[in-house]
């Protein structure tokens, strides 16, 4: 059994111009590791949405990606405001994004639904005033 491969990224909350950088690096690594386009696509979408959410809703956080024999595990942890109503936040179209964020193209309220849709498992741990940790897995073994 091969050792797990891990990647760690600090995601900064103040800089929209680097937003999506961690996702793009992970995508590149997964490509080098020879994963299928479908697996790479699903990880890219899920991680991008989670990374952007940490930037626009939580002032940044940390992203950890682990590649095991069976899955790719993405853990996104922030010390942001937390999500008061997870069920509501998971609904397509629900967004609290402010106008200046929306003018950049965010705020469709599709990020969390995309993360759910493109991963095999997704759990959200969140506490008001403490932060949010989202754990997602994408299976890469048929």
């Amino acid at each position: 059994m091969a050792d797990n491969i891990t990647f760690h990224f600090d995601v900064h909350g103040d800089n929209f111009s680097s937003a999506g950088e961690a996702s793009q690096l992970v995508k590149k690594k997964l490509r080098q590791l020879g994963f299928t386009p479908d697996v790479i696509r699903r990880v890219s979408i899920a991680m991008y949405e989670g990374e952007i959410n940490m930037v626009i809703h939580a002032d940044g956080g940390a992203a950890d990606v682990t590649v095991t024999d069976e899955d790719i595990i993405i853990v996104l942890a922030d010390r942001g405001p937390g999500i008061p109503d997870v069920e509501l936040a998971m609904q397509e179209g629900y967004s609290t994004a402010r106008e200046h964020i929306r003018s950049l193209g965010f705020g469709a309220g599709m990020g969390l639904p995309n993360m759910k849709k493109y991963t095999d498992t997704m759990t959200i741990d969140t506490e008001i005033g403490v932060g949010t940790t989202i754990t997602m897995t994408v299976k890469h073994k048929a």
Binding site: F16, A19, G20, E21, R41, Y48, G105, A108
Partner: peptide, 26 residues
Amino acid sequence: FLSRAMSRVSEGDLWITIMNNINVIA
């Protein structure tokens, strides 16, 4: 909307938009 495009644009597609910030490139 970026997160709609993210899930709708597949490999090799053309994406038509009037958004022009760096996130479009990402």
